[in-house]
Computed example of a mutant assay.
Amino acid sequence: MTTPVNMRASILEHTRSLIVADVPVPALATDQVLVRIAAVGVCGSDVHYFHEGRIGDFVVEEPLILGHEASGTIVAVGADVSADRVGERVSIEPQRPCRRCRFCTAGRYNLCDRIEFYATPPIHGAFAEYAVIQDDFAHSVPDSISDDAAALMEPLSVGIWSCRKAGIAPGTSVLIAGAGPIGIVIAQVARAFGATDIVVSDPVAERRELALRFGATRAIDPINDGIPSAAFDAFIDASGSSIAVKQGIGSLRGAGIAVLVGMGADDVSLPVSTIQNRELVVTGVFRYANTWPTAIALVASGAVDLDALVTGHFGLDDVEAALESTNSPATLKSMVVPS
């Protein structure tokens, strides 16, 4: 096909203001592929940028295309990429590390200081008809995987990275705070990794019911049921709640691991004596690295169901509605379909 010159995109002009406009199709570097976008998941970070215009140190200072959970079809390739890739359906790993720093060469490229990540200012994302990505970060997916599921390999990668950092293995007991999309994905991954006691806490009854459908062995109300003390090998926070973090750390047995995933307050007081006396490990999650092969295998095998997470589809003209839909407890994953 002839590569188009312009494309439609949903653009965040400033806080709470989106427009759809024609913009130039991104130019291809020699090591990149051009992907016609098929589906893009709405992430909590997109909602934060829309409402607040920032996440921590990342501030929207000029118009930005949001969206980083993306799939599509390769329609053009750079000079150093095999033309045989044209026509491949792919899941996009939406980041470009420098590949030279000490983090990149150690395989921890998510910590690269020079990384460029979709929809993180000033890098444009995928709420558009086309996007470019490095050849090896356009991961081929089998036809058995839908466009929606291929896009949702990105949040699945967050779940995989979280469970790896938490040391989830056969027989592990884990408490997951928050039954939103990431919490639900983490529960599915924990089950696939062999955890036998998967407890999800959430104050919203509808969310707890969803958790039981997607891998949780138990779902509890942290307000009325309380959180047991010293009962779990691992705790993963997917809520961003300061209270949930403190309760979760207290729920760990000796030598347990707490993994903080949810976006919440920049500063939280922690139960230091508990951490010291039980020799707990408290760590964070910043995206992921080397997760896509595992993600694709989990979905292709049926161990993780991403299609069941999708609760709505929206066009480029309705991105604001897609973002606002996340306010409903019944919404797990809203998808933007650019064309």
Rank of each mutant, 00 (worst) to 15 (best):
G254T: 14
I184F: 08
M7A: 04
P338F: 01
K246F: 09
A322V: 07
P329L: 10
E62V: 04
T172A: 14
G254K: 14
S273D: 13
R100Q: 15
T283W: 10
A131Y: 03
V189K: 07
A238I: 05
L323C: 06
V281W: 02
Q188G: 12
R108S: 14
L12P: 01
A169C: 02
S157F: 04
T294I: 09
A255Y: 13
I176S: 01
H313I: 11
A151F: 13
D267S: 10
S82N: 13
V33Q: 03
T326M: 15
P271L: 09
G302L: 00
L64H: 08
V336Y: 02
F127H: 01
G72S: 10
P122G: 04
D318M: 03
C112Y: 08
T15I: 14
R208M: 12
G183K: 06
T73R: 12
E320M: 08
V185D: 03
V304P: 00
E279H: 13
P122H: 04
G226E: 10
E324D: 11
E69G: 05
V141G: 00
C43Q: 05
L306K: 01
V185T: 15
R164N: 11
A321R: 15
S269P: 14
P293Y: 06
R8W: 09
P142M: 08
S242C: 04
T120Y: 11
V141M: 04
S10T: 06
I11S: 02
G87N: 12
D22C: 02
D266L: 12
I296E: 00
T3M: 12
R89F: 03
S251A: 15
G178L: 11
I55T: 09
G56C: 08
G302I: 00
I227V: 15
S10M: 06
Y49N: 00
E61S: 15
D307N: 09
A297P: 00
D266I: 08
